[in-house]
Design a binder for these strands. Structure first.
Lengths: 344, 344
DNA sequence: GTGAAAGCGCTAACAT
DNA sequence: ATGTTAGCGCTTTCAC
């Protein structure tokens, strides 16, 4: 038991101990069948004895890959990452995730960092400004890129998105079904194409029953801060005829609504994009439009894998369906029990 | 504008175009001051013209680092990652995060993957079983390891933890102050040392006023599933004298409690470990013991950096304070407005 | 079936 | 101040 800082053994050490050439060691660890059984055993013994583990940096450099998929997301708690990581792992890849706060400068730096590490593919949740030109250059070098949640502005890459318009339709129809006549929408900044699509879909529905002139006072979008969302909710409620229900554009917006008005939303009905953990226990329980984040993450990774082996495929867009998770007095409590699993 | 899959330029290409030696290119990109201004300019021009970007794999192989810190966490949404990533970025490092579901086999695989990539350091949120022996071998090779949230079983590594006992004291005292006499505890499985520490601290407090015999019916721990937590809450409430308040061991347990009993917890008072986004809007608003996750993540990374330059420092443990976030009818609403910022 | 040797794209001596 | 050269630890021809 030598203590202190021992040099890590290399393949050469293994070869020497096993009295074979390094190429033989390499063949053994790569399961090359042409190695004789006795040598293979000697090599395995030496590996065991030295506790040798391959240096992936060297392997990657030599083979021209990195065994890594880069993920560029707004925040490390981005729900897409779980599915992507799982899919990456089953493909023998690791996920190198970096967050950008959806800031253009950080995003550019993050993408460049990942490219310098020669990631084998890139999943990107694009911010508003976009890293378009640079990314296109990388794609020309053969980098598979999959946008997630929304396409990369001005860039033709694979992408996985949800059916935003359908989600709004589900929410809108649900509220109509509950008898609401005047409904308002509060969403994220329309610089994000997702938010824009949702707001637009809402406007289209509102026009079915309301005059065009009132639209600007039914739809409020902007950066999601408690202050701005609160102000816009107040503004929406001040409009006559007053809205009796709200459609929120994403989880963060819903949260702001609750924090601004309280858990009961002062009696307002609300259906939001994105499920949240306590939606079922609020009074009343809240119906939501749920995205399948796990599937989206996995789909993004799958698109990258596909493009790795078929680089010349036409650009694909995968639309993952959303679904309405109905909750409320009229719905049996049991129906929601599978929609959330406990993390730790 | 050549299209198709162009080979990425290398440093040799840059050198050739600039009519200098590769070492000169290397010096320029590494800001070596000894390069003459005219050559430096030629090199920069060539880099620009070719759109060359260094291959970090090669650089890392040569310099013996990886520019990467591994993070092994139970789930990718682990709140520690944000702080750790931020700190890593300002140190010029990237964070390679892998999730384990706190499963021993996955944890072992994850750690080994990261070691084969020769990460410069490892942050690990240890599962129950522990990867002790293997990790000790890696540490002998000089790998800086920082455990986060709880120490690695049987392994003397740096660690950053919270003051679990003090957190329980804060919760307990708060409830005593509100007039509660009988209080129960529901927590995570005591295989996790954090959960064990919290349960033990609770037992110590309960013993101040209750007979030892009743302890087993005041403290319930186990895996956090809605079913088990629900069952244990029911069991706790069936004990006479009946508890009028609950201390929950972590966010997941609190969530289960709400989902089992409803938002009002059937009138029960509750203080939980970990803040959660809607704690303030529930009726009544819920007081919590908040951990400073960002600080913990940053502290773990800082311990690694410290050990990188002073490998022989004695093992350190950093205890990050917890704080009671009081919420309730008697507290002005404004006081909580800074405790949650909106993500996205 | 096995070994010797040439790289992968960089950095760091060591020359000059 | 600049160039030449020997690696980092692997994989992969190419010989035998």
């Amino acid at each position: 038991m030598t203590s202190g800082r021992a040099r890590r053994p290399t393949m050469v050490d293994v070869a020497r101990l096993a009295r074979v050439a390094v190429s033989t060691v390499s063949r053994v660890v790569n399961a090359d069948t042409t190695v004789g059984p006795e040598l293979a055993e000697r090599v395995r013994g030496a590996i065991e004895e030295l506790g040798w583990e391959a240096d992936e940096r060297a392997r990657h450099l030599r083979t021209g890959v990195s065994g890594t998929i880069g993920a560029v997301v707004g925040d490390l708690d981005s729900p897409f990452l779980r599915g992507a990581e799982r899919a990456a792992r089953s493909a023998g890849l690791m996920l190198l995730a970096t967050s950008t706060d959806l800031d253009a400068a950080l995003e550019a730096r993050a993408v460049s960092s990942l490219c310098r590490r020669r990631v084998d593919g890139l999943i990107i949740e694009p911010g508003a400004a976009g890293t378009g030109a640079y990314l296109r250059a990388q794609m020309a070098h053969g980098l598979p890129v999959a946008a997630i949640d929304r396409p990369i502005p001005d860039t033709a890459s694979d992408s996985v998105v949800v059916d935003n318009a359908h989600g709004i339709d589900l929410a809108y129809d649900h509220l109509l079904g509950r008898g609401h006549r005047y409904i308002a929408h509060v969403g994220d900044t329309e610089v994000l194409s997702t938010a824009a699509a949702r707001a637009d879909a809402f406007r289209r529905r509102a026009l079915e029953t309301e005059p065009r002139g009132v639209l600007a006072r039914r739809v409020f979008t902007g950066p999601v801060t408690l202050q701005r969302v609160g102000r816009d909710i107040d503004a929406a409620l001040a409009v006559r005829p007053a809205p009796t229900a709200l459609v929120t554009g994403n989880a963060a917006t819903s949260t702001c609504a609750f924090r601004h008005l309280g858990a009961d939303l002062a009696g307002l009905d609300l259906v939001g994009f994105d499920d949240f953990e306590l939606a079922g226990i609020l009074d009343p329980p809240r119906t939501v439009v749920a995205q399948d984040f796990a599937t989206m993450g996995a789909a993004a990774l799958e698109m990258i894998l596909t493009r790795m082996e078929s680089p010349d495929l036409p650009v694909r867009q995968r639309v993952v369906p959303v679904r309405l998770v109905e909750r409320g007095p009229s719905v049996t409590v049991g129906s929601e029990s599978s929609s959330w699993t406990m993390a730790r």
